[in-house]
Amino acid sequence: MFPILVRFFSEKDGVKVKVIDLVDAYGESSEIIVNLLNSAMNKLNINKKLVAFCGDNAACNFGNVNRTGTNNVFYKLKQLYPGLIGVGCAAHIVHNTLKKACDKMPFDVEMIVVKIYSHFYLFTVRVAKLKKVCESVDVEYKKQIGYSKTRFLGLLSSVDSILRIFDGLKEYFLGDPNTPKSLLLFFEDPRAKMWLLFLRDQATIFTAKYIATNNHFDLESSDTDLFDQFTYLERFVTEEKIQSWEENGTATDQR
């Protein structure tokens, strides 16, 4: 099934998004898609009002990264509608933004999340042990949520599931002689929970700004949130404070 949506402006209701057709497409080539789009617009007589084409950032839709190809939907639509503007998938752009930002963190967050999840996935004995550890540190056990690289913003729920039982996970992995070195180094770092909290807040900024009723992003006033929080983090967490926390054995949630 191939859905066709239009975004338009109404003086009465503002910006609206409507499904104008749902077609049982016989293929996914650029030629087939262009014909379906053109047919739907001609049917409703809105072809003269077309301003932009928005779609997934796939090769079939936009060609290469510079949009210089000719065998794609955008190029072929421009032959029919000169001056057409190409708009990539906003959700994927936001995903990539968050992904690039995470690459600057002092650890590979994707690797950590995947390793923690896979360590317990389908291993009931390990889960049972983790539950006992959580009980010993007075933490209510919560099941870990998996993560797929195809949708980077899905990382939010995975990181949040780790933070909910962070002290239990830390106790579990630091006490297990078979813990992978990468996880051992991560949980030995006194700043590990702080970085995860920081990451969760940033992921929340990107995901919680959806306007559900209109299915579009509302990033108003959030463009400086990341900078403000990072600046505060950089100024507050000094090497001296970290050393003091370690010497005094300050609990992570009290730092």
Score class of each variant (00 low, 15 high):
37 L>E: 03
115 K>L: 02
127 V>G: 10
40 A>Q: 01
205 I>N: 05
146 G>E: 11
217 F>Y: 15
88 G>Q: 03
178 N>R: 03
55 G>D: 11
27 G>A: 08
221 S>I: 12
207 T>G: 09
255 R>G: 00
132 K>G: 08
232 Y>P: 01
65 V>C: 14
48 K>M: 13
245 W>P: 02
70 T>I: 15
54 C>W: 08
163 L>R: 01
215 N>S: 09
227 F>G: 14
6 V>C: 07
217 F>N: 06
100 K>R: 13
250 T>R: 02
100 K>L: 15
94 V>N: 12
81 Y>N: 08
119 H>S: 15
135 E>V: 08
222 S>A: 03
182 S>E: 12
78 K>F: 04
182 S>A: 10
220 E>F: 15
113 V>K: 02
74 F>D: 00
129 K>T: 03
240 E>N: 03
29 S>W: 11
120 F>A: 09
170 K>L: 01
140 E>D: 02
206 F>K: 01
241 K>E: 10
171 E>A: 05
192 A>S: 15
64 N>Q: 03
90 A>R: 11
235 R>E: 07
38 N>H: 04
158 S>D: 11
64 N>Y: 01
125 V>L: 09
198 F>G: 01
239 E>C: 10
173 F>D: 01
147 Y>P: 05
49 K>P: 10
201 D>L: 05
145 I>P: 02
164 R>C: 12
56 D>E: 06
169 L>Y: 05
153 L>F: 13
94 V>W: 12
83 G>Q: 03
171 E>N: 06
107 F>H: 01
75 Y>L: 14
4 I>T: 00
10 S>C: 02
180 P>D: 04
160 D>G: 05
135 E>R: 14
209 K>C: 08
141 Y>D: 01
118 S>A: 08
78 K>Q: 07
110 E>V: 06
161 S>K: 01
208 A>G: 08
1 M>P: 07
59 A>T: 10
172 Y>Q: 05
42 N>K: 14
148 S>G: 14
51 V>W: 12
235 R>F: 11
229 Q>I: 07
132 K>E: 04
222 S>N: 00
136 S>E: 09
104 K>M: 15
42 N>W: 13
73 V>K: 00
226 L>H: 08
